[in-house]
Design a protein around this nucleic acid. Sequence first.
DNA 1: CATGTGACTTTGTCCTGACAAAGTATTGAC
DNA 2: GTCAATACTTTGTCAGGACAAAGTCACATG
Lengths: 256, 256
Amino acid sequence: MRGVAVGERTPDAVVPEVPLDRTSPVPLYFQVATRLQQLIEDGGVPVGSRLENEVELAERLGVSRPTMRRAIQYLVERGMLVRKRGVGTQVVHPKVRRPVELSSLYDDLAKTGRDPRTEIRLLEVRPAPDHVAEALGVAPGSEITWFERLRYASGEPLAIMHNAVPTDVLAIERADLERRGLYELLRAAGRVPRMANQVVGARTATGAEARLLGEGRGAPLLTMTRTAWDESGRAVEYGSHLYRASRYSFELTLTI
Amino acid sequence: MRGVAVGERTPDAVVPEVPLDRTSPVPLYFQVATRLQQLIEDGGVPVGSRLENEVELAERLGVSRPTMRRAIQYLVERGMLVRKRGVGTQVVHPKVRRPVELSSLYDDLAKTGRDPRTEIRLLEVRPAPDHVAEALGVAPGSEITWFERLRYASGEPLAIMHNAVPTDVLAIERADLERRGLYELLRAAGRVPRMANQVVGARTATGAEARLLGEGRGAPLLTMTRTAWDESGRAVEYGSHLYRASRYSFELTLTI
DNA sequence: CATGTGACTTTGTCCTGACAAAGTATTGAC
DNA sequence: GTCAATACTTTGTCAGGACAAAGTCACATG
């Protein structure tokens, strides 16, 4: 027979105590959140189960209620937990559903082991054309680096990419661009893209485009134009890209 | 000559006092955030300006520092403000860049005054095909409502839409679907979509599709398949849609 | 048996107070 | 003048307490 504490609903899952390091520079709420996330991903706290109430949880883990709330909130925002007033906190997903990654094609391909390769067909410093200047929010005629790349994956052509980067944001070197993706270069320079506006459409390929991509004339292409900003709100990149629809599609997870 | 208070950096923008209603059910932090957002959008607090420090701001608006912080944090998450420890809080965007709206095509068209109309070409209750069951995360053969719609905007055909909704999530009536968008129906039933996974691609139209959409054979089409979940993590909708690329593109704003 | 009323649980909001960490500006030594 | 040490400003983290609001459940009442 198992004793049941009076005056409290029994939770489905008990979170084991968490070793906290108060001397660490990592904030307490983050230590708690990370540990909780691990437990959920490893199945220690099963999907669908209800957690203890936050007051008790805070007490047992040895943190204040605001800190415990902040840790839980963090996982709620990432889609792992759901809370309801008067009810409790429940696990709804074993894994984090990321809102959308702001990553470059190169990173994505490299991560999935598809051996990205880049052919730089053009690279020049020039005044920004009007539509580019407008997209970047800079004065017309401002100096930008303009380049065109042909991106291969697994040895096959995949995309034609046109980009503009303001010269005062980053000086682009041909050699760097051949080895690494644009976003990696931006990140390395401390101009981390944080926000982006994308328009995704489709059209059929012209003869020249089809030839470059190894498709037939009139083949369907995915088009994507994007402006990206860093955390201080400064535009760091404008891109206008063409993808072979037969070999590429965009996947995105989004939350309200 | 203008006096400068000693012991504090002068801000670029002064937030006027905000009328607060402490009897309202609307939380204080939200009242403050909403008002601040208005001020930024209307230009009362210019883009690029630095706000007063949060301690002073809280004092002057008559709320506690945590409440003020929460209001500011809300706008930081929406991409309007940027904060740096030791520096301050700065306005970076005049308008809210919503992460991405989780709205239906119908809502979007109605909002922009493009007179959406829907022709229901099929509606039946049937067991879920395997790929649909998998996308929804339900048992194969579970009962769903399956329907095909042709969507018009401004009198022109725009999209062919196929959808599946589990019958225990919502009973779909033909009449409702003709007058209102699917997402509006879901919301009205309390099954608010909160998270979605979308895959966007492109292909050329078959003869039948081209005929329905008023395009030529081989015209480029945007394809989109989506699964949407409500806040409790339950799948509420699966959709597989075809858009005329000549008349439609996806725009999305995303943050890391 | 249905039903609504009230006790109770649980999360949401709000407050005060304190110290730490990161940046900026000033000052002083060389 | 240059550079390092120092003072100061500003946001970040953490604690503890109090009350409100929403949901659940048992129980009394019709």
